[in-house]
Simulated assay, not measured.
Amino acid sequence: MTLETDAPLLSTPLTDLHRELGARLVPFAGYEMPVQFPAGIIAEHTHTREAAGLFDVSHMGQAYLVGPDHETTARALERIVPSDILNLKHGRQRYSVLLNDEGGIIDDLMVTRPVSEAADGRLFLVVNASRKAVDYDFIRAALPDNVRLEPIEDRALIAVQGPQAAAVVAAHAPQAAELAFMAAAPMEFDGIACHVSRCGYTGEDGYELSVPAGAAEAIARALLADERVQPIGLGARDSLRLEAGLCLYGHDIDETTSPVEGAITFVLQKRRKEAGDFPGADRILSELEAGPKRVRVGLRPEGRAPAREGAEIRDASGTVVGTVTSGGFAPTLGAPIAMGYVDAAHAAPGTALVLVVRGRELPATVADMPFVPQRYYRKPKS
Rank of each mutant, 00 (worst) to 15 (best):
R198K: 15
G40M: 13
F266P: 00
V160P: 01
A159F: 10
A185Y: 00
M33F: 10
G191P: 03
D252A: 14
V324M: 04
Y31G: 07
G327P: 08
K273W: 04
D190G: 09
V115W: 02
L143H: 05
P114Q: 00
P349K: 01
H45K: 04
T256Y: 11
V81D: 08
F55K: 00
P151H: 11
A167H: 10
D135C: 15
G328N: 02
D226F: 03
V26H: 07
A193S: 14
M182T: 12
E178I: 09
L149I: 08
T351F: 09
K270E: 15
I85Q: 08
A218E: 13
P231L: 14
C194I: 08
M187D: 08
D252C: 13
D107Y: 07
A215I: 01
D254W: 03
T2F: 00
V168S: 03
F278K: 08
D56C: 11
V324F: 08
G200F: 02
S286W: 06
L209K: 06
I264W: 03
V211A: 05
A330S: 15
L77W: 04
G310P: 03
A29F: 00
A244I: 09
Q374A: 15
G30L: 03
E309C: 08
P380I: 08
G322L: 05
A216W: 12
A173T: 06
M110L: 15
G276S: 05
E309L: 10
G206E: 09
M60P: 04
K293M: 02
H90M: 11
F371K: 08
I284W: 01
G162V: 04
P231T: 11
A171N: 10
V97K: 10
V324S: 02
E117W: 05
A180L: 05
V134Y: 07
E204Q: 07
I264R: 06
K273E: 14
P331Y: 00
A290S: 14
M60G: 01
R360W: 13
A281Q: 09
A43F: 04
A165K: 01
G233F: 03
V97D: 04
V229H: 01
T202M: 13
D145H: 07
G91E: 04
E78D: 07
A215M: 12
G53T: 00
R314Q: 12
D315Q: 04
T365I: 15
Y376K: 07
A216C: 13
G327K: 07
E188L: 12
L362K: 00
I264P: 01
N146W: 03
G291H: 05
V111R: 03
A225H: 12
